[in-house]
Computed example of a mutant assay.
Amino acid sequence: MVRAMIPGGLIGTYVIYRDRKPHYIGRSDTNLQRRLLEHCATARGNYFAYDIHTTREQAFAAECSLFHALRPLTNILHPDRPDHEHPQCPFCPDSIAAVLENRLRTPNL
């Protein structure tokens, strides 16, 4: 089914479900099809959902979103940044605090 649904060579994120609950989230920066086939071989879950992304940075942000929103998961470690790129997780408390601190302030009316 994975081979029929997802062409090779795409960047993407995924959620693997077990017993109707999110169990594991992940990302592939090179070949989403191959990564999901690896999970199928280890029988991590019952079914999956996926999204295709145009850049590794978009996939990283989406994976971070899933990691923060769907806990608890079997993922213990925060998603790793894409190779040779340094985006900040837009959902970590430090990133949110920095955005709030640097936002434009309007005078009280």
Rank of each mutant, 00 (worst) to 15 (best):
D29V: 08
N31M: 01
I76F: 09
N75E: 07
E85K: 15
T30N: 13
T54W: 12
Y17E: 05
D29P: 05
N102S: 10
E57H: 09
E101R: 10
S95P: 06
L70M: 13
R56M: 13
P79I: 08
Q33D: 11
A41T: 14
V15R: 00
P93E: 02
N31Q: 02
Y24L: 05
S28E: 04
P107I: 04
G26V: 00
I52K: 11
C92Q: 04
L37E: 07
M1Y: 07
L36C: 01
S28V: 13
A49T: 14
P87N: 10
E63F: 13
N31C: 14
G9S: 13
R71V: 12
P82E: 12
R44K: 12
F60V: 02
N108D: 12
L100T: 11
P82V: 07
R81F: 11
H53G: 02
I25R: 04
I11N: 03
T42Y: 06
F67H: 04
H68L: 12
C40N: 12
H23Y: 10
L66N: 03
E85C: 11
I11M: 02
F91V: 03
D19F: 11
Q33C: 14
C92A: 08
K21C: 02
R27P: 06
P72K: 09
E57C: 07
Y47W: 15
A97M: 10
V2Q: 10
I25M: 00
I6Y: 01
A69I: 07
A62N: 07
H84L: 03
P79Y: 04
R105M: 08
H86R: 10
I11A: 06
D94S: 12
P82H: 08
M1G: 06
L10Y: 04
N46G: 10
Q88I: 08
A61Q: 09
Y47H: 15
H39W: 01
P107F: 12
P82T: 13
P22Q: 03
M5W: 10
Y17R: 06
H86G: 12
R35T: 03
